[in-house]
Structure formats: structure tokens, C-alpha cells
Design a protein around this nucleic acid. Structure first.
Lengths: 100, 100
DNA sequence: TTATATTTGCCAAATAATGTCAAGACAAAA
DNA sequence: TTTTGTCTTGACATTATTTGGCAAATATAA
């Protein structure tokens, strides 16, 4: 489950209306609705705010937020798994000090 | 090695000037230069054209092209690997028929 | 019904991406 | 040094994408 589904799940668990979250993010409820349905992307700072309001772990939620962005790149790709492997390799190389 | 580095490597192996590839892609050499340096993103169709000119496998090059896009999302992230794992999971779920 | 919540479509504004031009840097000759 | 060709950079205009709001439509309750 990625970001959009997750914040919806959390919100429903807490029985909060979208309106309340939208207000906290200072956006229209329609916009918030779109974020929850994956039609709009939340901003990074908004993820943090949401984690607070929904009382969930910031890092975990941020990971889902990032995952959703990546997913949108590969979701229709035949070789999605292979591509992810390639990136995984690059991340490891990067961390091992082979910067840039 | 991701897309940008790879096309540069191939071009140098074949000792072709950027000018030649730029012409084939119908873009300015400056633009091509930026693509090769990762400052601009090639279009999907351009990847195919490049694979032809550089005589390399299309799918493989396309994978690198996708990888580069993903990498740009997670490269500065602490939890890059974890995020990739999450996406990997989602991809598997998707393929297993749990559409949408 | 009435009230509240969510969703949708459309629009304008904001933001990001793209490509070109002109100039600069650089190396290898000549 | 001057020339030639290649590559790179920065500023800028153009284009494309994203964003959020509004209003209307559709649910969901009460």
C-alpha cells in the first residue's frame, strides 16, 4: 500500500473528515481529496504535517510518499523489477563512497 | 552506470561527435550535451533512436533511462533502499493480478 | 428532505522542463 | 599564436506539467 491509500486508511481509522486535514494543510478539500486518490502529489512538507495529524511515523510515511513517486515511473513497465535492481545497485555504489 | 554515462561511453567508443547524435535527434548540440551530462532528460523515443545510432540494445538502454529517473528521486534519500523495497513489493503485487 | 462529505471537471496561476543562442573553455593541430 | 573543432555553460524564451480553487455533481447520513 502506498502513500495515497495509507493516508486514507489512517484518516478513516481516526474518523477525521478530509476537511480537517485540508484545513491543516491550508488547501481546498477538493485538492486534499485528489491527494488521497493519488491524483495530486502532496508536497514534502505536507507529508510531515500529515504524519503529525494522523499520528503516524514521519519517516515511514515519507517512504511511502517517495515510493509512490517511483511507482508512477515504473508501474507500466515490462522490466520494472530489473530497473529497480539497477537503481538499487547505483544506490549501493553511491553509499560506498563513489560519490557523483 | 546509468543512462547519461552509458550513452557517453558508447559514443566515445564509436568516436562520434555529439553533433552527429544531436542532428539525428533534431536538437541543438548544447541540448544533447546536457542530456549526456544528466542535466536534461531524453525523451522516450529519443532513447530508441540513440540505441540505433549507438548500436546497442534498446531495452537495456531504456532500462538505464528509467533507472536514471528513479535514481533522481531517491539519490539524496536516507532510506533509498527501503523505498526501493517498498516499490518492489508493489510491483510484485501488481503483477500478481491485484490490479489497481 | 436536509445536512455533511467526497468527488469531478474545468480553469487560471504557479512551477518545472525543454531547447536555443551566444559565449566560453579546452585541446590538438598548424 | 592563430585556427579549428568539440564540448560546456549560462541566460533566456518557450512549452509543458502541476497545482489549487471554484462550482457543480455525487455520495452518505441523519
Amino acid at each position: 500500500m502506498l502513500f495515497a491509500d495509507r493516508i486514507k486508511q489512517l484518516r478513516e481509522q481516526k474518523q477525521m473528515p478530509q476537511r480537517q486535514l485540508a484545513a491543516a494543510l491550508e488547501i481546498d478539500t477538493a485538492t486534499y481529496c485528489k491527494i488521497e486518490r493519488g491524483e495530486r502529489r502532496a508536497k514534502r512538507e505536507q507529508v510531515s504535517t500529515l504524519a503529525d495529524l494522523l499520528e503516524t511515523d514521519k519517516d515511514q510515511l515519507l517512504n511511502l510518499w517517495l515510493a509512490e513517486q517511483i511507482y508512477s515511473v515504473v508501474k507500466d513497465e515490462e522490466n520494472a523489477e530489473k530497473v529497480l535492481d539497477i537503481v538499487h545497485e547505483s544506490v549501493i555504489e553511491y553509499k560506498s563512497g563513489f560519490k557523483k
